[in-house]
Design a protein around this nucleic acid. Structure first.
Lengths: 254, 254
DNA sequence: GCATAATGTACGGCGTGCCGAACATTTGGT
DNA sequence: ACCAAATGTTCGGCACGCCGTACATTATGC
């Protein structure tokens, strides 16, 4: 449902991969020492892990050289990071746990959580964000939402509910009062609900693959200087879209 | 906050201990074969684990003899089982996951979850059960509840909120219309909220130790023939009370 | 350029946790 | 009471994952 990559990595190797991923994000090159410091293991342990990861073709590794991720490795690392973020989001946004504690807990649990449960966490956060005034239907509505809407993927009732929610809200519109737009017109930090996906190409496919059908919450995470490309968060995935792709996606702003 | 026992057991040994605990519950005597079947490991692996547990004085073990838990072992096992149940309850009652999937997930995660997060799960379930019609205050109320009420332990505001909830409900009273009682008068399956703990002895202490102050949800799980003893579930713990102890605890029925 | 510090690696060792095979003990049928 | 079958144990072996030490390579200051 939510995972596209499974490498059957041990928890330990996943940790190494995630650490490399984050270090590369920060400094563009990973050194054994940094990895060791981050994971609190000795340098010799790092070398061992690097061999294991290289053998699985997840990293580009040559002795004494800098370490980078292969495409495959980046995909796996992103999946691990996604699990981490979904968990952390849930802890922070739903359980009202402090950011640091949430991160620490997510670290420990990200290897043990089954995909099905992870999806539920994700859905729950989305539900809370969409539906902060659900009244007594709150929890029952969530059950319905999980059992019916998500599975069909069509989510017709869901869209209705969500749009009703949106309409009934007095606050929460975009700053300038717009209520509908294409994804390409959205600004940094704005949230919306997908209404229609007009494109026919790869983007439509990619969105559908990750379960982002009509009714799905989308959030703008980063916008390049001229609005191209635009980075959005959908269902816990981070996705970069070209402007012309984004404009084919109609949304209702929340 | 919520744990009283920490043995620093490996996840594996915790699994063995929990398995023994459950088997003893069912059949009053654990055999290596059953443990192995339950955990899907070979008999020889079981023997090894038993040695480790015996060395830590968690089980009574003699070669070729039946296996029972020591008091210490039972305490640890109950704590593990509690973690399992809190997780499962959360998955079932909040995330609307099926019982079996919830159990499986709880099995995997019960070793990785920090106590602080576990407490939040527990509180969340209680909150949902107490407050099913919270309106838009729902999620904010939970944050408040976690941050203020629980920490003080006094929970005055919480009691007010809860009692208001109870009063405003049209359904949910006990079958015979009672709305308040002592714990000793409650029947199987009834739920209530603690209003006052009059006793001074060990029970009061035990309840306070486990965080069960006024405002805490309590549920009757089992009642012996003449109402003595009575087994209740409080904050994820299972507690057996004598009738005279239970009568000192005033509750509002939900 | 060269010495020295910083960093990376190889190797042997340790603890955990699992297995299968061989051996020991108990159980159950007769 | 005795012989199988079931069950329990021991032992050696394997895979992980970590460490410290010693050695190899690269980086840095002069």
């Amino acid at each position: 449902m939510s995972d596209s990559v499974q490498m059957d990595l041990s928890a330990s190797l996943e940790d190494y991969l995630e650490a490399i991923f984050r270090i590369v994000q920060e400094k563009s090159a990973a050194r054994a020492k940094d990895i060791g410091k981050r994971l609190k293991v000795s340098r010799s342990s790092v070398t061992g892990a690097l061999h294991a990861l290289a053998q699985r073709e997840l990293i580009n590794y040559a002795p004494y050289d800098l370490i980078t991720l292969t495409d495959k490795g980046r995909a796996v690392a992103e999946d691990v990071a996604r699990r981490h973020e979904v968990l952390r989001d849930f802890f922070v946004k739903v359980l009202a746990v402090g950011r640091e504690d949430a991160d620490e807990a997510a670290c420990k649990m990200e290897h043990a959580i089954p995909d099905a449960i992870l999806d539920r966490f994700l859905d729950f956060v989305e539900f809370v964000e969409r539906c902060p005034r659900g009244g007594s239907k709150w929890i029952k509505g969530f059950g319905y939402y999980c059992d019916n809407d998500n599975k069909t993927g069509n989510c017709e009732k869901c869209v209705e509910l969500v749009l009703d929610e949106v309409r009934s809200r007095t606050t929460g519109k975009a700053a300038d009062g717009r209520t509908s737009a294409s994804l390409g017109e959205m600004k940094l930090g704005e949230k919306g609900v997908i209404v229609r996906i007009s494109g026919t190409g790869g983007i439509r496919r990619r969105l559908l693959d990750m379960g982002a059908t009509a009714g799905t919450l989308v959030e703008v995470e980063r916008v390049a200087p001229f609005g191209d490309p635009i980075e959005v968060k959908i269902k816990g995935y981070h996705l970069t879209l070209r402007k012309d792709e984004a404009e084919r996606i109609a949304v209702k702003l929340i």
